[in-house]
């Protein structure tokens, strides 16, 4: 039997702006470059986590979005991670391939898998929970919804962090949301699209 699930909280990161539950939370109009934006956002969040600076930009996006979504602490250690994007980790693939001519870089190679981001979030919050990373051309709410519902229905989790974390040619699109058995907004494809779409072009 399918139970009623809710969207508890959401975070969007686009064009140097962060939205929390639909409201503008942070803006950095002076930093068109993603790496500077990510550095300034980290400072503004007052996070102290040195591993952040070793991460590739894709992992940083997922990591810092999660920090903002959960206020720095995922209390429910069963929180499953259901993530996806369009470009996998192609940006880092390109950086790594540039090192292949001379000295292939192990510290870049390790980030040439999109699910490394899930490892980074799991390490930070000590989650030994369910993981999956999907690839789709565009944000596909049904993938996240159906897979998350299966985890709930099969008793494998009671909380899910979903993440669309895409990075292509310096352009990023991050949508994170928490699915729980209680909350304000009913979880369905319509609501997800409503939250995802407004600030997007």
């Amino acid at each position: 039997m399918s139970e009623v699930l809710y969207i508890k909280n959401s975070v969007l990161i686009r064009d140097a702006k962060v939205y929390q539950n639909g409201r503008l939370y942070y803006e950095d109009t002076k930093s068109p470059d993603i790496s500077i934006f990510l550095k300034n956002l980290y400072k503004s969040e007052k996070i102290r986590y040195s591993k952040y600076f070793k991460m590739d930009d894709l992992s940083k996006l997922g990591f810092i979005g999660t920090e903002i979504l959960f206020g720095g602490n995922i209390e429910n250690k069963e929180t499953a991670l259901v993530f996806g994007n369009a470009a996998s980790c192609l940006e880092t693939d390109r950086y790594y391939s540039e090192t292949m001519e001379e000295f292939p870089s192990p510290s870049l190679f390790v980030y040439t898998l999109p699910n490394i981001m899930l490892g980074e979030i799991s390490i930070r919050h000590q989650l030994r929970s369910e993981n999956i990373f999907f690839i789709s051309e565009k944000f596909d709410s049904s993938l996240f919804l159906e897979y998350s519902k299966s985890l709930f229905n099969q008793g494998k989790t009671d909380n899910v962090l979903c993440g669309w974390v895409d990075l292509q040619n310096n352009d990023y699109d991050v949508f994170l949301w928490e699915i729980a058995r209680s909350g304000k907004t009913y979880l369905n494809e319509e609501e997800l699209k409503n939250i995802y779409l407004p600030t997007h072009e």
Binding site: L81, G119, E120, S122, I123, Q126, L127, R128, S129, N131
Partner: peptide, 11 residues
């Protein structure tokens, strides 16, 4: 059935 779990240890 199948179940996944992260180590939360090292990437």
């Amino acid at each position: 059935d199948a179940v996944t779990a992260n180590d939360a240890n090292h990437i």
